[in-house]
Structures are given as structure tokens and as C-alpha cells.
């Protein structure tokens, strides 16, 4: 049974189409990554799943409930919006208690869960501190804890690690793995491509369309392309030669990554070799990273590189 089923979902803000025929399923127990650049439609999609925005066209079911049943859906899911949305003038403990009350968690049960969440987030020593005075990483941990206080079956996280330092991001993902271990399904969006590697399955979204939805391994093999890394003292000149020959040609630090379809790889390399005669360069084949795959899918797309 899929936890989320989306069929042919479209959403319009007035005349601007934010979601275009989105079909997607999230399997029970998985961490599903929704990966795409800013304004790809990630937030819109998540808000529709939470019932914050209506389903205009298409069919959405969450935990076997129709999206019109949003009040019931809301009591079963946990949601963390993109922006930090807890009460900055309330303390860590007050925020947790407030959300426990909103979900009608009995007082005794609440205290037990708060202890569990403290143990897991290491927030106990800050329990009296106002949320506004927490660091970025701790804020996200608190928001995650608040979203978990009623033991949701599905957790929807909108760019939870955006703007968080790398160490805290890593800790945050460890926490997600732990939550998954307890049997909670997680749908998480991110603009960071390296985080795709941490998901069981990912959906690539751009311009309101789902480009691909599968495990990373399957996406890689379906992609069916090779990536080569070139380096040379004069990168600019090399870039000029490579760009018209490759399917995608990007600068990564002092290397140039080019993407060539598997089938024509050998042939293309020969052509490249003949064209770049006289220029000093080195190259090697590298494993395609999520970033390469994205860029070739979404080119031209504007990316925040982590």
C-alpha cells in the first residue's frame, strides 16, 4: 500500500501553472526525496498533501484518505514548513507542549514523548531557552520534534536542511534515518543534490513536472550516459572545444565535467581528441553524481551548489 498516491495533479496560481500533470507515489516506510530547484513546485505539492491548498485537478490520496478529508489527514501527518514556523517567543518546552495540545496528546503521554524527543534531539539542556534564541540547526531539530510529538505515520518536510551548516545537516539526516527506523514514512524536499543519495527513492521535479521518480540506482542506469572530467591549464580554451561536442558541459572548480551518451561515448572521445590537439589536458571517466544527472535533466536550470 502506498502512503501517498498522486495522479495527474495540476495546480494553478491564477494563470501561472505551478504543477503540471504530477503523478507520484510514496511507498510506505521509505524516505522519498523530492528534488528540484527553487520554484520547481515542491512547496506547492507538499502544501496540497497537507490540505493547506486545495486539489484543483487530479487525485491525491494520503494514507488512503482522499485529499478532501484534510482534517483527518492532518491528524495523522507531521509537517515542517520551509520557513521556521514555531513561536520564537516561546521556549523549546513550551513549543513542544503547545503542539502536543493541538494534537490532543494526553498530558502523561506527552511528557514521555518529550523525554524521547529530547534524548533524540539533544535539546533537553535548552528546554527553557526561547526558540528564537536557538541556532539554525537546533531550530530545525526543534521543528522536527514538534512535527513528531503526535507520532505521525507520515512526515512531510519542506527543505528542512536549507541554510543549515553541514554538520547539523548530517545530524539531521541521521535523525531522519532513525525516524524511518521507527516505521514512519518520510517525504522530504531538498535543493541539495548530495542529499538525494540519502533517500530510498527520489523524484526529480522541475517547472512543475516530475522528470523521473525511482531509486537512485535505477535513475543512473536509465540515464545511460557517461561523465568525464577534464582538466587543463587553460580551462577556458578547453571549455570552448568541449562545449559543442558534449550533451552537457559544466565547470566544477578547476575541472570540466562533460556528459556523453553511453552509445556514442567512444566515438565522441575520438572526436574530442582530434579537436583538442595542441592543448595540454588530462581526462578520466568518473561516476555520475546526482548533480550531473540533474544538470543534464534540467539544463538550463539555476542551482544552488551545496
Amino acid at each position: 500500500m502506498n502512503t501517498i498516491n498522486i495522479e495527474h495533479l495540476c495546480y494553478y496560481y491564477d494563470k501561472v501553472q505551478a504543477l503540471d500533470d504530477v503523478s507520484l507515489s510514496v511507498i510506505e516506510g521509505e524516505i522519498h526525496g523530492l528534488i528540484g530547484p527553487d520554484s520547481a513546485g515542491k512547496t506547492t505539492l507538499m502544501r496540497i498533501l497537507c490540505g493547506l491548498m486545495p486539489t484543483q485537478e487530479g487525485k491525491v490520496s494520503v494514507l488512503s484518505l482522499d485529499s478532501d478529508d484534510f482534517m483527518q489527514i492532518r491528524s495523522l501527518i507531521g509537517y515542517m514548513p520551509q520557513r521556521f514556523s514555531l513561536y520564537q517567543d516561546l521556549s523549546v518546552a513550551e513549543n513542544l507542549k503547545f503542539f502536543a495540545r493541538l494534537f490532543n496528546v494526553p498530558a502523561g503521554e506527552r511528557d514521555k514523548r518529550m523525554q524521547d524527543l529530547y534524548a533524540f534531539s539533544h535539546l533537553e539542556e535548552f528546554s527553557g531557552r526561547r526558540a528564537g534564541a536557538l541556532s539554525g540547526g537546533m531550530k530545525q531539530k526543534l521543528a522536527l520534534s514538534c512535527a513528531l510529538i503526535h507520532r505521525p505515520r507520515l512526515l512531510i518536510l519542506d527543505e528542512p536542511t536549507y541554510g543549515v551548516d553541514p554538520v547539523s545537516r548530517q545530524e539531521f539526516w541521521q535523525m531522519l534515518k532513525q525516524i524511518q527506523g521507527d516505521g514512519t514514512t518520510i517525504l522530504v524536499s531538498t535543493p541539495y543534490m548530495d542529499e538525494a543519495e540519502l533517500c530510498d527513492r527520489v523524484s526529480l521535479i522541475n517547472g512543475g513536472k516530475i522528470l523521473e521518480s525511482d531509486t537512485l540506482t535505477n535513475i543512473r542506469s536509465k540515464w545511460n550516459r557517461k561523465v568525464f572530467s577534464f582538466s587543463a591549464p587553460n580551462l577556458k580554451q578547453l571549455f570552448g572545444v568541449l562545449e559543442p561536442l558534449a550533451e552537457s558541459c559544466q565547470l566544477f572548480g578547476n575541472e570540466i565535467h562533460i556528459v556523453i551518451p553511453n552509445a556514442s561515448a567512444a566515438q565522441s572521445l575520438d572526436i574530442i581528441k582530434s579537436r583538442v590537439e595542441g592543448i595540454k589536458y588530462r581526462y578520466e571517466e568518473i561516476e555520475s553524481s546526482m548533480e550531473d544527472i540533474f544538470l543534464s535533466y534540467m539544463n538550463p536550470g539555476v542551482w544552488r551548489v551545496s
Partner: peptide
């Protein structure tokens, strides 16, 4: 304005 409404709406509150 603060965005907290979005967070409390995703609860069974009426």
C-alpha cells in the same frame, strides 16, 4: 506574517 499559521493549520484544529 510570521508563518506560524501554516504550522498550526497542519493540525486537526478547527
Amino acid at each position: 506574517e510570521l508563518g506560524t499559521m501554516e504550522q498550526i493549520l497542519v493540525s486537526p484544529i478547527k
